[in-house]
C-alpha cells in the first residue's frame, strides 16, 4: 500500500458504500435501464474488493453520464464524448486507481468514437461501460449511432438511412482485450460481467443495453435475452479472435432482428496493457507518477537529484 492510496484495504465492502449522501436517488426516468447499470456496478465493486476511495468514474455528457453523481467514488463529469482521454490520463498518472469510464452510445460511438478506437488500441487497463439505448435520451429522442436502420425519430421522421454502428466488432477491431454485452434486464449477469471487466488487466469494453422507456418506446426492452455462455446453441472460443469476430457480427445483426444475445465475446488475458508496455521499455516508473505529490520523501529526493545534476 503506497503512501497516498488506500489500495488493498482488507475488509468487507458493502455495495451501499457506493450510494452517495448528496444524491442517493438518481433522477433518471422511471423504468430507465440506467438504474440497472448503477445497481450492477454497486454489486460488482465488493466483488473486486475496491472501496469508493480507490475508484475514479469518468463520464461524458448524456443521461447515462450522470452516473457519477449517483455513484460514490471520485467523479469526473467531462464534456461530450471525452471521457476516455481523461480516464486514460488519470490511469497513467496513478495506475493504482480503479478507472471506470462511462457514457452513452452517442457519446462513445459517435462524437467520441475516435477516442474509443484509440483507447482500445492502446489497451489501457480500465473499464469502459457504454449505456446503449439506441437513442439520444438527454436531448429528447434523436437517432443515435446505434439506432437501427429505418429508426424513426424527430430528426429522422422517414427513418434513418444509416446502418447502425457494430459496437462489439468495433471494440474488437480497435484492440479492446475484453469485450462483452449485457442488458439492464439481466442484473445478475450484468454484475458478473462488470466485475470481470474491472478485474481484467487491459481495456475492457462493456456494451450495456439500457432500455429508454421515455424516448425510445418502439425499441426492444431487451427481453427475452440469451446468455451465449449459458446456451447450448452457441459454441465459440472467447479467446479466439476470429471466432469472436464471427460471433459478434451475428450478435449485432440478431439484435436488430429482435433477438438479444448477451455475454462475453472476446477475452485476451495475455496482451500487455499500455502501462506494462511502457514499463517494459523503461519509459514509465513502477511507482505511480502522481505519488510524489503525496510523499514527504519525494521533496528530499528531488532536492538531491537537483544537486546531483548541478554539481
Amino acid at each position: 500500500m503506497s503512501a497516498f492510496s488506500a489500495i488493498d484495504e482488507d475488509r468487507e465492502i458493502d455495495p451501499e458504500e457506493y450510494t452517495p449522501g448528496i444524491e442517493p436517488q438518481a433522477t433518471w426516468c422511471p423504468g430507465c435501464g440506467d438504474f440497472s447499470v448503477l445497481k450492477a456496478l454497486k454489486q460488482a465493486m465488493p466483488e473486486v474488493g475496491r472501496t469508493p476511495e480507490e475508484v475514479l468514474t469518468v463520464t461524458g455528457i448524456g443521461c447515462s453520464s450522470k452516473l457519477n453523481s449517483y455513484f460514490e467514488s471520485y467523479g469526473f463529469h467531462s464534456i461530450h464524448g471525452r471521457s476516455l482521454p481523461i480516464a486514460r490520463a488519470a490511469k497513467l498518472a496513478n495506475p493504482d486507481l480503479e478507472v471506470i469510464a462511462a457514457g452513452g452510445d452517442g457519446d462513445g460511438y459517435g462524437i467520441g468514437g475516435n477516442h474509443f478506437i484509440h483507447t482500445a488500441r492502446e489497451n489501457h487497463d480500465m473499464t469502459y461501460i457504454v449505456f446503449n439505448n439506441e437513442i439520444f435520451g438527454l436531448t429528447k429522442g434523436q437517432t443515435s449511432p446505434t439506432s437501427p436502420k429505418g429508426h424513426k425519430s424527430k430528426t429522422q421522421p422517414h427513418g434513418s438511412a444509416k446502418d447502425p454502428i457494430r459496437p462489439l466488432s468495433l471494440g474488437l477491431t480497435a484492440g479492446a482485450s475484453y469485450v462483452a454485452r449485457t442488458a439492464a434486464t439481466n442484473p445478475n449477469q450484468a454484475a458478473e460481467i462488470l466485475a470481470e471487466a474491472i478485474e481484467h488487466d487491459g481495456f475492457a469494453h462493456v456494451d450495456f443495453l439500457t432500455q429508454c422507456p421515455t424516448w425510445n418506446k418502439d425499441a426492444k426492452s431487451y427481453v427475452p435475452y440469451t446468455d451465449v455462455q449459458e446456451s447450448d446453441e452457441f459454441d465459440f472460443d472467447v479467446t479466439d479472435r476470429k471466432e469472436a469476430a464471427e460471433m459478434m457480427y451475428e450478435v449485432e445483426s440478431k439484435l436488430y432482428e429482435g433477438e438479444v444475445l448477451t455475454g462475453r465475446f472476446y477475452v485476451d488475458e495475455d496482451r500487455p496493457s499500455y502501462t506494462e508496455e511502457k514499463q517494459a521499455t523503461g519509459e514509465m516508473p513502477e511507482e505511480p507518477l502522481a505519488e510524489k505529490y503525496f510523499d514527504e520523501d519525494s521533496e528530499w529526493k528531488r532536492s538531491y537529484d537537483l544537486l546531483e545534476h548541478h554539481t
Partner: peptide, 23 residues
C-alpha cells in the same frame, strides 16, 4: 433543427437534412 427536419420530412422544405455524429 428538429422542426427543420420535420419540415423537410413533411415535404414543406426541399432541403437536404444531414444528421451527423458531432458538431
Amino acid at each position: 433543427v428538429e422542426k427543420l427536419s420535420e419540415l423537410v420530412a413533411d415535404g414543406q422544405l426541399d432541403s437536404e437534412f444531414i444528421k451527423v455524429d458531432s458538431e
